[in-house]
């Protein structure tokens, strides 16, 4: 079992840092390239949400907590931003509060599709926390086969 906490300011250049750091953390579980790519995409979506929606016009910190337990990777991405007033609305595909900025509204749908488990908690003016996990097919099982 291994754990890590990453904390960085909500600026967009940290999107690439966060997804690559989580990918590097997951490597001991021997994910396939496609599994790793799923994780990177989901992390990128959640971190981008915190930066673009959570903090919008203010500064703040994004926290990424990861736990690797065997072939399971658990990830929590949280901010102390504005929060989501209506989560079920936000989870609808193509729903976006910022259509003028070419936002697709597909971020949550992608996280849900690419990860094994997905959950979002949010409170207005307090922040948002995305919890998700991915079970890897596990290198050892593959090698044994």
């Amino acid at each position: 079992m291994n754990e890590m906490i990453l904390k960085f300011p909500a600026c967009s250049e940290n999107e690439v840092f966060a997804r690559n750091a989580v990918a590097a953390f997951a490597l001991p579980a021997e994910p396939t390239l496609s599994e790793l790519s799923d994780v990177k995409t989901a992390v990128s979506e959640a971190v981008t949400n915190s930066i673009v929606h959570g903090y919008r016009d203010r500064t703040g910190w994004v926290t990424v907590f990861c736990r690797l337990d065997g072939a399971s990777l658990y990830i929590e991405i949280s901010d102390e931003g504005r929060g989501i007033p209506d989560i079920s609305k936000a989870l609808e595909p193509f729903f976006t509060t910022l259509p003028s900025e070419e936002r697709s509204g597909m971020g949550f749908t992608i996280m849900q599709t690419f990860m094994s488990e997905f959950e979002v908690e949010s409170k207005e003016n307090e922040g948002t926390k995305v919890k998700m996990s991915k079970r890897f097919s596990a290198g050892q099982a593959r090698n044994a086969g």
Binding site: V16, S37, T41, T48
Partner: peptide, 13 residues
């Protein structure tokens, strides 16, 4: 090498 949902918005634009 990488694309997230930002790519969707970009392409639709």
């Amino acid at each position: 090498k990488f694309m997230d949902s930002t790519g969707i918005g970009f392409l639709i634009g």
